[in-house]
Computed example of a mutant assay.
Amino acid sequence: MTPTASVKASPERTAGPADPRRTAPPRTAPGRLRRTLIAWGFCSPFIALFATFGVWPIFSSLTMSVTDITSRDLRTPFRVNFVGLENYNALFSDPTFARAILNTFYFVAVGIPLTMVIALALAVALNSGIQRAKVFFRVAYFAPVVTSVVAIAVVWRYLYKPDGMINSILALIGIHGPDWLNDPSWSMPALILMAVWRHFGIPMVIFLAGLQAVPAELYEAARIDGATRWRAFHSITLPLLRPTTLIVAVLLSVSYLQFFEEPFVMTSGGPLDSTTSISYYAYEQFGFGNYGLASAASYVLVAAIALLSFVQFRIFRAKA
Rank of each mutant, 00 (worst) to 15 (best):
T2G: 02
T2V: 07
T2N: 10
P3C: 00
T4D: 03
A5Y: 06
S6C: 00
V7S: 00
S10K: 04
S10W: 13
R13K: 08
P17F: 10
P17E: 11
R22G: 05
A29Y: 06
R32T: 06
R35H: 08
L37H: 06
I38T: 12
A39W: 13
A39L: 13
A39D: 11
S44P: 12
A48P: 12
L49Y: 13
F59N: 01
S61I: 14
T63S: 08
S65N: 03
S65T: 02
V66C: 04
T67Q: 01
T67L: 01
D68Q: 00
S71F: 01
D73I: 00
L74K: 01
T76D: 02
P77V: 04
F78H: 05
F78Q: 02
V80I: 14
G84N: 07
E86Q: 14
Y88C: 05
A90D: 13
L91V: 05
T96W: 07
T96Q: 13
A100D: 09
N103Y: 06
T104H: 09
F105A: 00
F107I: 01
V108G: 01
A109E: 04
P113N: 09
T115I: 11
M116A: 07
V117N: 02
V117F: 15
I118T: 09
A119S: 11
L120W: 07
A121N: 08
A121D: 03
L122D: 00
A123P: 09
L126H: 13
N127Y: 07
N127A: 03
S128R: 15
G129H: 11
G129V: 15
I130E: 06
Q131W: 10
Q131T: 11
V135I: 05
R138E: 06
V139H: 05
A140R: 07
A140N: 08
Y141I: 04
P144N: 10
S148W: 02
A151I: 09
A153K: 12
V154M: 14
V154L: 11
V154H: 12
V155M: 11
L159Q: 08
P162N: 06
P162W: 08
D163K: 04
D163A: 07
G164I: 10
I166C: 03
I169F: 11
I169D: 05
I169W: 12
N182P: 12
D183E: 15
A190V: 14
L191T: 14
M194K: 13
G201P: 04
I202K: 00
P203N: 05
A209I: 02
L211F: 06
Q212T: 07
A213M: 04
Y219Q: 02
Y219E: 02
E220K: 09
R223A: 12
I224Y: 10
D225R: 09
A227G: 14
R229D: 12
H234F: 08
S235I: 04
I236Y: 07
L240D: 03
L240T: 03
L241I: 06
A249Y: 15
A249V: 13
V250A: 06
S255K: 01
F259E: 07
E261G: 03
E261M: 01
P263M: 06
F264V: 05
T267L: 15
S268A: 14
G270V: 14
Y281T: 12
Y281A: 07
A282D: 11
Q285I: 06
F288Y: 15
G289E: 01
Y291D: 04
A294Q: 08
S298L: 05
Y299G: 05
V300S: 03
L301T: 12
V302Q: 05
A303T: 10
I305E: 10
F316D: 08
A318L: 10
A318I: 11
A320V: 10
